[in-house]
């Protein structure tokens, strides 16, 4: 795994070099500034597989550097791990919103760095194996008929405001749970019938529609502070990060209107009539670090339950007032 580490403190770079060398990550390049790092990335014949970035650096900081790396086509989904002493919520929020995949706070535990990089290495290897098996996958897959595996894939959608990879959203929640989950809520959105509607479509057509739905979700959630991710097929999860909440019924109405206004059509000219269903927000406030790991799954399960049962029945259930009161 080819790694680029950026930190203005040479001691941290020495530490990382040592820690990574011991576990076999010897292909490491180090830079003491974001400017130097961008030069290294540009000059690299073989692209870097992973980035380890400090946040607080003179000149361009690590969050700006993350944004700059994400703009490069070769690094839209490359793992970017922030390794930083900045443990405040605002830094964590900004780093993930800029495109960070994971976040480790200094002083770091050596075992923690090993564990995180081990996971990333597995992802990088899996990605390379897919590419080796199918070196021309991107252009061919786009026009081929969508498969069950395409439906299961979680699209990164990193070009859409506040959308991050699903794994990054999980990492974000885990990291934030160590600081404060105060005022945070998660909810799911599902698009019933999406897989059936795209069974005979191309990958490109399916992915474009997922992207259109994500765009609509992002537009409708603004100006709230949030992060969102595609969870595969027609499923999305959103995390409101700044004490805001949504009325799921009103939000669903707005989202459906926005999607209708987009006037989406299949390639054969048929109008698209798919409508998203919005789950109830779940408060993260009282969740433990362990509990927060399941919250995205719970949010999706709730949205699926809403899609199965008419919402009017759920609204009249005796627990709905309590749910509203406590933001469950």
């Amino acid at each position: 795994m080819k790694i680029l580490a950026v930190d203005d403190d040479p001691l941290i770079l020495q530490l990382l070099t040592e820690v990574l060398r011991v576990v076999g990550f010897t292909n490491l390049t180090t830079c003491e500034s974001a400017h130097d790092a961008l030069g290294e990335i540009e000059r690299a014949d073989v692209p870097f597989d992973c980035f380890l970035l400090d946040i607080q650096m003179p000149g361009m900081d690590g969050i700006e550097l993350t944004r700059a790396i994400r703009k490069l086509p070769a690094h839209k989904v490359s793992p970017i791990v922030m390794i930083t002493a900045m443990s405040d919520r605002s830094y964590i929020d900004n780093a993930f919103a800029a495109g960070a995949s994971d976040y480790v706070t200094k002083p770091f535990e050596i075992g923690e760095v090993h564990a995180r990089l081990g996971q990333i290495h597995e992802r990088v290897l899996a990605h390379k194996q897919r590419e080796d098996r199918n070196p021309v996958s991107a252009p061919r897959d786009a026009t081929s008929i969508v498969t069950a595996s395409d439906f299961q894939s979680r699209l990164p959608l990193s070009d859409i405001d506040a959308f991050v990879e699903y794994l990054a959203l999980e990492n974000y929640l885990f990291q934030v749970s160590r600081v404060s989950l105060f005022g945070m809520r998660a909810f799911g959105i599902v698009v019933p019938g999406l897989e059936r509607a795209f069974q005979a479509s191309s990958v490109y057509e399916y992915q474009s529609t997922v992207s259109d739905f994500a765009e609509a979700i992002s537009d409708c959630l603004k100006p709230r502070s949030f992060l969102a991710a595609h969870a595969g097929s027609g499923e999305f999860v959103c995390v409101l990060t700044d004490g805001d909440t949504i009325d799921p019924v009103a939000f669903e109405t707005t989202l459906c209107e926005t999607i209708r206004d987009m006037d989406l059509h299949f390639c054969d000219g048929r109008a698209m009539t798919l409508e998203p269903v919005v789950g109830n927000p779940i408060s993260l406030q009282l969740k433990s670090s362990r509990g927060v790991a399941n919250v995205l799954v719970q949010a999706l399960a709730d949205a699926e339950a809403v899609a199965r049962a008419p919402r009017t029945h759920r609204e009249t259930a005796p627990t709905s007032a309590l749910k509203q009161l406590f933001g469950w």
Partner: peptide, 28 residues
């Protein structure tokens, strides 16, 4: 102090790291 806070504990000086971190946070 930000730099000291980033490395001291990993290198065996946890108390110095905490002190430096408190100054770093207070100034930030």
């Amino acid at each position: 102090t930000h730099k000291i806070a980033g490395t001291a504990a990993t290198l065996g000086y946890p108390e110095l790291g905490v002190q430096a971190s408190e100054i770093d946070d207070a100034i930030d």
